[in-house]
Simulated scan of single mutants.
Amino acid sequence: MLRNYQRREVTIYMENKHLATKINGHTNFSNYWGTVARDIDTMRLDFTYFECISIDYIDKAPLNYLRGA
């Protein structure tokens, strides 16, 4: 979706600090991390700026609302 909107700079916020550090460090991902982590790592190559930021809390209320819609 970001590619379709011609976005060149991306910041992803996530609760998993260890995963954010690994993605920002361009670590090779084993099967332990799964396909989502590998897909995020591959996707970062498409953008001029790509960063994962770890935050302590993500408000999931909007997501829960969308699931129920």
Rank of each mutant, 00 (worst) to 15 (best):
R8H: 03
I23N: 05
I12V: 15
A61N: 08
D46K: 05
H26A: 06
T48S: 13
S30L: 12
G34P: 09
N31H: 13
D41F: 10
I53P: 00
L63M: 14
A37H: 08
H18F: 06
R44I: 01
T35M: 05
F29G: 03
S30I: 04
I40S: 05
Y13K: 05
N31C: 09
I58Q: 11
F50S: 00
K22Q: 13
M43T: 05
D56H: 07
I23H: 06
Y13R: 03
I53F: 03
L19A: 15
D39I: 06
I40W: 07
H18N: 11
I55G: 00
N24P: 08
T42H: 04
C52Y: 00
K17P: 08
Y32L: 08
M1G: 08
L45E: 12
I12D: 01
V36S: 08
L45K: 14
R3S: 07
K60G: 09
E9Y: 01
N28M: 07
Q6K: 13
I58Y: 09
F29K: 02
A61W: 04
I23R: 03
I40M: 15
R67G: 04
T11S: 02
L63Q: 14
Q6R: 10
T35Q: 11
A20I: 06
M1W: 02
Y49M: 10
G25H: 07
N64Y: 09
M1N: 05
